[in-house]
């Protein structure tokens, strides 16, 4: 295998996942939280594809494509919720959405 070995890819995937988690925890706009979740999913996808290359079988890539499909459906539902919030003139701030709090 030319270039860096799989360890480098896995470390990069971990750093990407953590950056995404940081975004989910720090930001308050639900749009940016969704974008950060996408970064986390992409980090896990990179790890899956790196391990698929390491093992020499394509099953990890199949899994990554399934994750992509799940991410697409998650975006559809999440953006639908955000649009519904926008139409009801709810402020787009996850700290202020506390109607469900007991």
């Amino acid at each position: 295998m030319h270039g860096p070995d799989v360890t480098w890819y896995v470390v990069l995937a971990a750093v990407l996942f953590v950056i995404g988690a940081l975004g989910v925890l720090v930001r308050r706009s639900p749009l940016i939280i969704l974008l950060s979740v996408e970064i986390m999913l992409n980090g896990s996808n990179l790890a899956l594809i790196a391990f698929a290359r390491h093992v020499g079988r394509e099953d990890g890539q199949i899994f990554a494509i399934a994750v992509m499909a799940i991410a697409a459906s998650e975006v559809v539902v999440g953006l639908g919720l955000i649009v519904a919030m926008g139409r009801r003139n709810v402020e787009l701030d996850v700290d202020k959405l506390r109607t469900l709090r007991g």
């Binding site: 890819y9 992409n42 594809i49 698929a52 290359r53 494509i65 559809v76």
Partner: peptide
Amino acid sequence: VLYLLLGGEFVAAAQVLVYGGAVMVMF
């Protein structure tokens, strides 16, 4: 690009088309 380096040609194409195309247009 990283997926291409790892030998995932189809996944790289799907990434650009599905993620970079469809999902981001929706966003």
